[in-house]
C-alpha cells in the first residue's frame, strides 16, 4: 500500500521555482530589488490596512520569492492595498512594495482570479468605460453602475446622499464629455495594443 504524500502538491523543485521567479520579476518595475528583502516587516508595520490582510506585505514578498505566486493572487492583500505608499518610503532595502502589489493585481485581473461581481474589478471597469466614453470621470454614473452590479440594495440607501450632493452643486446628473474625446479613445486603443512599460 502506498502512503499518500500530502506534501507533494505544495512542493516545487528549486530549478522550476527559480525559472518562474525570474520570469515574474521581469514584469515588475525595479523588481530585482526584492532580492534585497531582509524580512524586517517594516512594510507590514507601516501599512494602515495590514491588520485586515490574510497575507501581510512582508509575507507577500517572502512567498513571491519562494515562487508561491498562486497563493498571493488568491489573497485579499492585493485588493486591500490603498496605494498609500507608506511601505515603499520606509523600506530599508528600497523595494517598490506598492508597485509590486500593483503588478500582482494586474496579473490577477489578467488571469481573472476573483469572485464574480468583485468590487475592485467592477469599479475599475466602470471607471475606465467612463473615460472611454467621456474622456473624464462621471461620478454619479460611476456610483450607480458600481452599485447596480455589486449591491443594488445600497442604491436606495445612497439616494439621499446623492440628492444632497446634487443640490449643493457637488454632483452632476448628466455626464460632460470633453471636445476631443476621439483623441483619448485613439490613445487608449493604441496603448492597449502595445506591450507593457
Amino acid at each position: 500500500m502506498k502512503t499518500p504524500n500530502l506534501l507533494e502538491p505544495k512542493l516545487k523543485r528549486e530549478d522550476e521555482l527559480h525559472a518562474a521567479f525570474w520570469e515574474q520579476i521581469k514584469a515588475i518595475p525595479r523588481g530585482e530589488l526584492i532580492q534585497n528583502c531582509i524580512q524586517c516587516g517594516t512594510c507590514t508595520g507601516s501599512c494602515p490596512v495590514s491588520y485586515m490582510m490574510d497575507i501581510t506585505p512582508r509575507q507577500t514578498v517572502a512567498l513571491f520569492r519562494a515562487g508561491h505566486l498562486e497563493d498571493i493572487l488568491h489573497s485579499r492583500t492585493i485588493w486591500l492595498c490603498a496605494s498609500c505608499y507608506s511601505c515603499r518610503v520606509r523600506c530599508p532595502s528600497g523595494i517598490l512594495v506598492t508597485d509590486l502589489l500593483y503588478a500582482l493585481k494586474r496579473l490577477a485581473m489578467d488571469k481573472k482570479i476573483y469572485p464574480e461581481k468583485f468590487p475592485v474589478y467592477v469599479l475599475s471597469q466602470a471607471f475606465i468605460s467612463n473615460i472611454y466614453k467621456y474622456g473624464r470621470n462621471y461620478e454619479l454614473g460611476l456610483g450607480i453602475r458600481y452599485l447596480l452590479r455589486t449591491e443594488p440594495m445600497k442604491l436606495l440607501k445612497s439616494a439621499g446622499f446623492g440628492m444632497k450632493m446634487i443640490t449643493k452643486g457637488r454632483m452632476s446628473i448628466t455626464p460632460k464629455a470633453i471636445k476631443k474625446v476621439s483623441e483619448v479613445r485613439a490613445i487608449i486603443d493604441k496603448a492597449s495594443q502595445l506591450g507593457e512599460v
Binding site: 494586474r106 485581473m109 467612463n130 473624464r136 470633453i178 474625446v181 507593457e196
Partner: peptide
C-alpha cells in the same frame, strides 16, 4: 480640453494605458 488622469484605476489594469 484636459482629460481624466486615469487615477489608480488604469494602473491596476494596464499601466501603459
Amino acid at each position: 480640453d484636459w482629460n481624466c488622469c486615469g487615477a489608480t484605476m488604469y494602473m491596476s489594469i494596464k499601466q501603459l494605458v
